[in-house]
Structure formats: structure tokens, C-alpha cells
Design a binder for these strands. Sequence first.
DNA 1: TATTGATTTGAACGCTTGTTCAGTTAAACC
DNA 2: GGTTTAACTGAACAAGCGTTCAAATCAATA
Lengths: 195, 195
Amino acid sequence: MARTQGSHSDITGPRVRDAALRLIAQHGYAAVSMRKIAAEVGVQAGALYNYTPDKQSLLFEIMQAHMQDLLTARASLPDAADAVRALEQFTRFHIRFHSRRPAEVFIAYMELRNLTPENFARIEEMRRTYEGQLEAILRRGVEEGVFRVAEPKVATMAVIAMLTGVNTWFREEGRLSLDAVEEIYWDMVRRSVTA
Amino acid sequence: MARTQGSHSDITGPRVRDAALRLIAQHGYAAVSMRKIAAEVGVQAGALYNYTPDKQSLLFEIMQAHMQDLLTARASLPDAADAVRALEQFTRFHIRFHSRRPAEVFIAYMELRNLTPENFARIEEMRRTYEGQLEAILRRGVEEGVFRVAEPKVATMAVIAMLTGVNTWFREEGRLSLDAVEEIYWDMVRRSVTA
DNA sequence: TATTGATTTGAACGCTTGTTCAGTTAAACC
DNA sequence: GGTTTAACTGAACAAGCGTTCAAATCAATA
């Protein structure tokens, strides 16, 4: 058994994923060919099939890994003492997490329709799980009497849309720091649901 | 000069635009071929070139017409007596206008990167014009002392993202009426910026 | 009815697509 | 140094791409 270690696949594998991530985020799934991904890696198109069964899997695995990262990172946060602190934690976490992964976030929002129905269902379930966590926080705040929210499901969508929107305009090298942006959004989110 | 009236182009022209709108919204610009658009219209691919110089123009004209409709509709609204009423008017207008044009809105947000740089710049300018109107309302509210907004530009992006997000989940046949949704969002928007 | 010209067809152009696979290369083991 | 085999190449496949254009079609005018 030759070359069980030091094999190129240890290097090429991640490079394929990285190239796919960057190119799809930039040009869109349909506009990126396997040959372009291969060229970015410095390899012929056929070699990609040592690392992915097909193009669809490349997209799905990018999105699944991203959503799994999101759920795992979120689960590792400490419990919050009350609903207000939980909402603040969620708000800051969401902005910070997403702003550090612009390519993944872009793909996760733009390329849903390029997933097969089965893959779409799996990603959608993870998204619903995440949104459910925010909804639970809002309901908890209503019970505690600190939030006034007529429709927790609608408020959840409103807050998530607002927070995810940061990625459309925030730039690391811009006028405002991410900390400053966090403050502004937390202030708006808090006020939008406070009783 | 034969057939100056009753020409088929009066009918086929709009049908090409409609087919392109529907197909691009559903599958994305890159995934929709001229042959698919032609098939939807019931014509051969070559015939499309009587109605558009190329595929890119089809996309651009859809987006430009949509943004122009938006700016025109917005301009036709009566002046508001104060900043709070102006913000309420903007909020309700945005939700109503966008919810009635899901395909156009979807394309306007998803297909920006498939525009040529020149066309992108033209669409982006129209978008900035629209966003500038909301920003002006927020600044007016700060001057009137009714709004507390640290960063009007950021608050503008936050509110627009929140409102446009309605299109991702609202369904005509769903549990909530559009009027009810309008109320919920106006309540949240108002609270998020009220002093 | 004959003519006109807008409209559409259907084939063709060169190029790209995702995927497969026999054959080549080269690194790590014995 | 010879053997093994993972990794990769390069060509091929059938299909589809945007676009062009000579020829055919056909409705309205004269």
C-alpha cells in the first residue's frame, strides 16, 4: 500500500472546495463550470471527480457545512439569564458569524434553487432549526413580559432579514467597525420588540 | 407597407418579456436559455431576436422597468405631514408594492451580478435613489426629534432589508393577510427608530 | 388578386457543458 | 530498485449554448 500519507488528495481536496466556494459566490452556481473550478485549483476537470461525485454535491456540501457550522457555533454559546440577554446574544452572534463568512452566506441565500429537491429539504430544515431558536427567544420574552410581539413567527423573519442584510453592505475596511455595527443593530432589534 | 397593424409583434413582444420574467425568476438567468424562453412563447429561438438584441438586454430591461415602476409609484404618493407619517407611508408602500411583484423583486435581488458593469451601474443608481428617500425620512425624523437614529445610512439598510424580507415568506393564501403583515411591520419599524 | 414586407422558421456557426475512462505519472512502501 | 497504487491527464461523449441569416410564411395593402 503505497502513499497512504502525503497523498496529494489531502491538499487538493480542500483546494477544490475552496475554489468552488469562491467561484460560486462570485459568479453563481450555474455560471461556474467544472473546468473553471479545476483551472483555479491547477488541475484538469476530470481530477475533480476524485473529490466530489458531481457538481451538485459540491454545492450541497458547501451549504451543508456552512449551516452545520452555524448550528454548532450557536449551540456552543452559554445559556442566557433572561430573554433580553438571549436576544442580545443572538443578535451579536448572528452578525459576527455571518460577517466572517460572506461567501458562504451569499451562496446559502442565492443558490437554494440550484439544489435538488432532496438537498433543498435538508438545508431548509437546518435553516428552520436556526430560526426556531430566535422564535423561542421572542416567545420567552413575551412570557417574561419584556417583549411585545404580536406574531413571533413574523417577528423572527423580520429580525433575521434585518440582521442578515448586514452582509449586503458591510465592508471590513469601511467607516464603521463591526463592533459599532453590532451596537446599532442590537439597539434597533431590542427596540423593535421591547414591550 | 403591409401589416403595419395587427402585426404579431404587438403580441409576441410582451410574451417574450413575460416568459423571460417568469423563467428567470424561477431558474435564474444563467440557467434559462433563449431556446427555453422561445419554447415558452411558442416560437423558435431565432425569432426572439426581433424583440431583443441579446439575452443580456432581456435581463436588463426587466430590472430597469421594475426599478422605474418602483420610483414612479413612489413619486406618485402624496406628501406626508411629518416624519412618522412619511415612514409609515414608506413602509406600507414598500411592502405592498413588492408583494405584488414577487418575480421582479426576486430577479432584482438575485441577478445583479449577471448584469454587465454598465447595466449594473444604472440599476444600482436607481436603487440608491430609492434608498436615499428612506434615509431622508429618517433624517427628517431626527430633526423633528421624533426619531433616534445613530446612523441613518445603517438604519436605512436595516429597515429596507427587514421590509424586503417579507417577500421570502409571505404567501397570498397564507394565514395572515397583507394588511395584517403591514401592521406588524409598521409597528416594528416604528419602534425600531422612535426616540 | 398581386404585391409587399413584417414575422418566423430551421439550419448552421463555433463554443461550452458535466461526466467518463483508458492511460500516464510519480510518490511511498518493501 | 522494483512494486504498488493513488492521483492526474487528455481525449472523448452527447447535449446544449447564444447568435446569425437565407429562405419560407402569411396578413394586410393596393
